[in-house]
């Protein structure tokens, strides 16, 4: 699994970590308790997410046929990916597992991206209701990365530019097996 953290570890190889590398890791490690608390708070909401997302979608978009129970459950099932990306502070996980995949899926199914994006916005609302401001601040950039990726003209564009995780995105791995 390739992350910015594993990159630092592998690049150090047979030398000591540099002070800059240790500072970067220390800064990230110090945020782990908050990231883990956020994951726990989201986990507590997990069992009801599908149901609540569907209820909210039916309320906000009563005419949209797309929003079924399996669809709402699928939307809720994206959460562990976002949580994992948040724990790793690695936005590339969102881009590769969700954004790239959904873009391909939308093209193949000729589905309106905005309807999917709206459902993810509802999921975000449902989750954020249960989080503190600090917890929201660590997961929000990953929701934004997803929403900007699939709905580039949506309102998250501005937010994403200011809340993007600090590190540079790692180059994509190429599977060669």
């Amino acid at each position: 699994m390739k992350t910015w953290l594993s990159d630092i570890i592998h690049q150090a190889n047979e030398r000591y970590f540099t002070p800059e590398e240790m500072a970067r890791m220390q800064e990230y490690f110090s945020t782990m308790p908050l990231r883990l608390q956020t994951a726990s708070a989201i986990e507590r909401a997990d069992p009801v997410l599908g149901r609540e997302v569907l209820a909210e979608l039916k309320k906000q978009y009563p005419d949209r046929q797309l929003y079924s129970r399996p669809f709402a459950n699928d939307i809720a099932a994206l959460v562990p990916v976002l949580v994992h990306a948040m724990l790793a502070d690695e936005v590339q996980f969102v881009r590769r597992r969700l954004v790239d995949h959904f873009q391909a899926m939308m093209t193949n199914l000729e589905m309106p991206m905005t309807e999917v994006a709206d459902a993810i916005r509802v999921l975000r609302e449902v989750i954020f209701r249960r989080l503190s401001a600090a917890q929201t601040s660590v997961i929000e950039p990953f929701f934004n990365a997803l929403l900007v990726g699939i709905d580039p003209n949506g309102p998250e564009k501005l937010a994403a530019s200011s809340s993007e995780p600090a590190h540079e995105d790692s180059p994509p791995e190429v599977a060669t097996v």
């Binding site: 699994m1 994951a39 726990s40 986990e43 562990p80 990916v81 994992h84 724990l87």
Partner: peptide
């Protein structure tokens, strides 16, 4: 931990 928590919560 990051390796173990793909698609599950810690």
């Amino acid at each position: 931990l990051l390796r173990k928590c793909i698609d599950r919560y810690p």
